[in-house]
Computed example of a mutant assay.
Amino acid sequence: MTRVKSLADLQPMARELKARRLAIERVREQREAAARLADQERRLFELSVGPVEPLRHAPRVLHERELPAPEPRQRELDERAVLLQALSDEIDIDTLLDTDETLSFRREGLSLEVVRKLRRGHWALQAQLDLHGLRRDAAREALGQFINDSQRRGLRCVRVIHGKGHGSPGREPVLKGRVRRWLVQKNEVLAFVQARASDGGAGALMVLLA
């Protein structure tokens, strides 16, 4: 401890204490000034905006997000390969078609009334496939995939447009006979008839699915 010998020794200590008090006072004044400024700005904002009320939040229910179903890519590739191999162009369908003017088709056990209803448009058309411009293999694959997808989606009545052959060599309907052959080989197909004139006529088939 420093020993004080005279009053002169106290003067430096007094000056130091005074300087500390002044520094503490300045800090306090600066804090008070900042608080007053913040209060003024808050009051100015309240005067500018006016009285406010907190928003009312309606009760919310948080739903768990469902993950998308995995895509069976390999199964689709396998099915596509099977389609190309399974649908034959050589099958004789003359004995399978009804001998009416449109050569309609119905599975064994189905009554003629089913064909009549299909021809009259009893079932609403739910999807269609247009095969115009496709070569034989591409059309066969597209048709097989379309029937599979439609049956998987639960569709009952679809239309297949094969064309009238006006753009084919010799103006012969190349796909017309083949489409009928391919359809009778699909177990999902219960019946088909030539479409009405308003639905494509001789260039399309109305198909009833299981």
Rank of each mutant, 00 (worst) to 15 (best):
P173V: 04
K186E: 13
E66V: 13
R181I: 03
A23N: 11
L96K: 09
L17A: 14
A197I: 06
V193M: 06
L97C: 11
A33P: 00
R60K: 07
E76I: 05
E108N: 08
L103P: 01
A124P: 05
R159M: 12
G144T: 05
H166S: 12
L7E: 02
F105M: 07
G177A: 08
E71C: 06
H122F: 14
V160R: 02
L62N: 10
G121D: 10
D94M: 04
D199E: 15
L83A: 11
L47K: 10
L67S: 09
A19L: 08
H166V: 11
L97N: 09
D89Y: 02
F105N: 03
I93H: 05
A69H: 02
L96R: 12
E66I: 09
S168L: 03
A23M: 06
D130L: 01
T2K: 00
D130N: 15
E101F: 04
I24F: 06
E113T: 10
E76H: 09
D98G: 01
R136G: 04
P59G: 01
C157Q: 12
L175Y: 04
G121F: 04
Q30A: 14
R136M: 12
R171E: 15
L87W: 12
R135Q: 13
E32I: 01
H122I: 02
E101T: 12
R28A: 15
R156D: 12
D78Y: 06
A142P: 11
R152I: 02
A127R: 11
H132P: 02
R180F: 09
K186Q: 15
L205S: 07
L62S: 14
V189K: 01
D92T: 06
R28W: 06
R140T: 07
L190E: 15
S150K: 02
E41N: 03
R15W: 06
L131A: 05
F146I: 05
W182P: 07
L110P: 01
F146C: 08
A81P: 00
L125W: 10
G200Q: 05
K5E: 11
R116V: 13
I91P: 02
D39E: 13
L190W: 13
